[in-house]
Write a protein that binds this DNA or RNA. Structure first.
Length: 386
DNA sequence: AAATGAGGCAACCGCCCCGTG
DNA sequence: GCACGGGGCGGTTGCCTCATT
């Protein structure tokens, strides 16, 4: 028994707007700025009459707000906008207007269309349920998925996944992760990886599949570290790399420059003092200046269970790391730092065409200086150890 | 070259919320 | 408290374009 559509009134035009109609509406709106509940004293219903249009008010409002408004941003949505949509959709669902209010110049209609035609499919392709924003269980194709089924509550997986997708602009939920034990933490990582469709290999040679995955989803920074984590998970589950496994020359854990979750010292120490068969050979490779770890917030997301949250300042944080190192008698054991050890123990390899640290760092705009400082610190630290 | 299919997107439809009398 | 109407919102439709057969 609903009200009849406003456009049912005889003589009113429907369908695509012509240039002349647009012109009339724009002229009217520029002059009077009507509609919007009558702040101007003119309701949308009156707009077509006054503008000389044979349209209903609703049609005029839609045309104006979705297309003619001068502050409408045209063109493809940026990566950042896309990410924002995914994040917000995970939070609020199909509240297109709410999402649009966070994207200046974009309309709810545009976002809705973009979601339905692009993002939904994209997430599905990645094995992610676009409604729940959780990985879709696919039992094939993944060592992890066949050896462990997550027992984590779905909302926890969702929260974790959302955090991952929020990338480096949103603080990682440390409280959440610290409440987990390492097994759960690793389980989460494995779920995420499976959701990405990332194929992890225990091969000691570079894995094209994994690097391809990274290429396909370039906004998921830190994929290499995830892969390393996943391998470590496999390792824990009983398929450790053999002692004869060699550590490849071009091991590179590359991240952008954001955040200071933990500094390089941790990684380095773990590499050197854990009880893993790769330690010795990795030590050899880390002495080469062309190999380095750029460690950031992203990778530290996975240093979850047994590490402290980052402190408020870099210096404090470095001190914490030193202190922790001392407390352990100068040794870190992989049981204490289970996830980061994976970076060292994992046979997963990421190769890069970049020859030097500077090549990478030069590409980091925002955190150029920060990254440079981090790198110097790391280099100094390595030299101290050596 | 024509037919067909798929994808993208502007526009419409109908329900809901909220202000007003 | 209730009815009414305007505006807003999310779901859906259908046209247009482009790719494929």
């Amino acid at each position: 028994m609903g009200r009849s559509a406003c456009c049912d009134v005889n003589g009113l035009k429907k369908g695509p707007w012509t240039e002349e109609e647009d012109e009339k509406l724009v002229k009217y709106m520029e002059r009077y700025g009507g509609g919007g509940g009558g702040r101007s004293g003119i309701s949308w219903r009156q707009v077509p009459k006054l503008a000389g249009l044979k349209r209903c008010g609703k049609s005029c409002r839609l045309r104006w707000t979705n297309y003619l408004r001068p502050d409408i941003k045209r063109g493809n949505l940026s990566h950042q906008e896309e990410q924002t949509i995914i994040n917000l959709h995970a939070l609020v669902g199909n509240k297109w207007s709410a999402i649009a209010s966070n994207l200046p110049g974009r309309t709810d209609n545009e976002i809705k269309n973009f979601w339905n035609t692009h993002l939904k499919k994209k997430l599905l392709r990645m094995g992610i349920d676009p409604v729940a924003h959780t990985p879709i269980t696919t039992p094939h194709n993944h060592h992890i998925s066949t050896t462990a089924t997550s027992t984590l509550p779905p909302q926890l997986l969702a929260a974790t996944y959302n955090n991952l997708m929020s990338n480096y602009t949103t603080p990682w939920d440390w409280a959440l992760l610290q409440s987990l034990n390492s097994v759960h933490a690793i389980q989460i990582v494995s779920e995420i990886l499976r959701g990405q469709g990332l194929v992890i290999s225990n091969s000691t040679t570079p894995t094209p599949t994994a690097t391809n995955s990274y290429d396909h989803y370039p906004y998921i920074l830190g994929m290499e570290m995830e892969a390393a984590v996943a391998n470590y998970y496999n390792y824990l589950l009983g398929s450790p790399p053999s002692s004869s496994t060699s550590v490849p020359d071009h091991q590179l854990v590359y991240h952008h420059g954001h955040g200071l979750g933990y500094d390089y010292a941790d990684l380095t120490m773990i590499n050197r003092h854990s009880n893993c068969p790769q330690d010795t050979s990795l030590d050899n490779t880390t002495t080469a200046t062309s190999h380095y770890y750029h460690h950031d917030e992203y990778s530290s997301k996975f240093a979850i269970a047994n590490m402290k949250a980052p402190s408020s300042t870099d210096d404090d944080h470095k001190m914490q790391n030193e202190l922790y190192h001392d407390q352990q008698g100068g040794h870190h054991h992989h049981h204490q730092l289970p996830v980061l050890v994976s970076a060292a123990t994992s046979p997963y390899v990421v190769t890069s065409t970049h020859d030097t640290a500077n090549d990478l760092i030069a590409g980091m705009d925002d955190d150029h200086q920060e990254a440079t400082n981090e790198q110097s610190y790391w280099k100094r630290h390595i030299m101290d150890i050596e």
